[in-house]
């Protein structure tokens, strides 16, 4: 049983990848379309691309935009999310905006952002903001709403003030969903920066993709796309690691709440 689990957990994904690689390589070798170069060619090019100065500068550009835009967006998003989740008035006032911005395709807003911030980093940062802010708000406010009302009542019975209740009960209760929001936002920030760079700035990895695509340098294009994929994977893992660090009580909770020592303390 255990062996079977180990097999399916660690071996099967590798097998899946290998099959994928084989299919890619075969299609590439068949020379069906210039859009599918053989995997081995792509990998060979990747090593070159990833160590090139141009790539590293662009990577720095893109990551820099995310690093500047994302943390303050998360901070403000969490604060607004708490307001919306806990106070009716805030929910009534903001709900319609949040839902609207969540459903508008961000690309449609980029021309307006360019009118406001110009063709440069300002517009890219604003795109990342719009792409991530509302996800954080919605997740945080949902998290706030999962707060056990019994805990709040208990705190009130012990004379807890609203401030203390929010800090010690609402925030920790909202943490799992808030951090899930942060994880989604991190992924979206990477998407957002690439899209913005492609459309607005022609800088960073997005700009690189745009130029490589235009020049039909397909191997290099794939190398860049692969890099972005890895970037997404790494940042997700980082956020996940942060989640485990922030919520030690969730760590060993696999078997539910009932597992525990027997009643023999008396």
């Amino acid at each position: 049983m255990r062996l079977k689990n180990t097999l399916s957990n660690s071996v099967l994904p590798v097998v899946g990848l290998l099959i994928g690689f084989a299919v890619w390589e075969t299609i590439g070798r068949l020379d069906l379309s210039p859009a599918f170069p053989p995997l081995t060619d792509v990998l060979a090019t990747s090593v070159e691309v990833w160590t090139s100065e141009r790539f590293l500068t662009n990577l720095q550009d893109s990551l820099g935009s995310v690093a500047i835009a994302l943390p303050p967006t998360i901070l403000v998003g969490v604060l607004v999310g708490i307001l919306v989740g806990r106070y009716r008035i805030a929910e009534w006032a903001l709900d319609v905006y949040i839902n609207t911005f969540l459903s508008i395709p961000v690309v449609a807003l980029i021309p307006i952002l360019v009118l406001i911030f110009g063709l440069g980093r300002g517009s890219i940062l604003a795109t990342i903001f719009i792409y991530t802010f509302f996800v954080v708000v919605v997740n945080t406010s949902s998290g706030v709403k999962t707060t056990d009302p019994n805990l709040v009542e208990m705190a009130k019975s012990y004379l807890g003030t609203e401030r203390r209740i929010v800090r010690r009960i609402v925030l920790p209760a909202a943490l799992p969903l808030t951090l899930a929001g942060v994880r989604i936002a991190t992924g979206r920030a990477i998407k957002g920066v690439i899209i913005a760079e492609q459309v607005i700035g022609l800088i960073g990895l997005g700009g690189m993709i745009q130029r490589l695509g235009g020049a039909f340098r397909v191997e290099e294009l794939y190398a860049t796309i692969l890099a972005i994929g890895f970037l997404g994977l790494i940042s997700m893992e980082l956020v996940r690691w942060g989640e485990r660090l922030a919520m030690p009580w969730m760590r060993d909770r696999v078997n539910g709440a009932s597992a525990g020592p027997a009643e023999n303390a008396a």
């Binding site: 009580w249 539910g256 709440a257 597992a259 525990g260 020592p261 027997a262 009643e263 303390a265």
Partner: peptide, 15 residues
């Protein structure tokens, strides 16, 4: 006194 660092879900209902 022996359980001060446990989390609630590690305790029985009585505890």
């Amino acid at each position: 006194s022996r359980f001060v660092n446990h989390y609630p879900h590690e305790l029985s209902g009585g505890m």
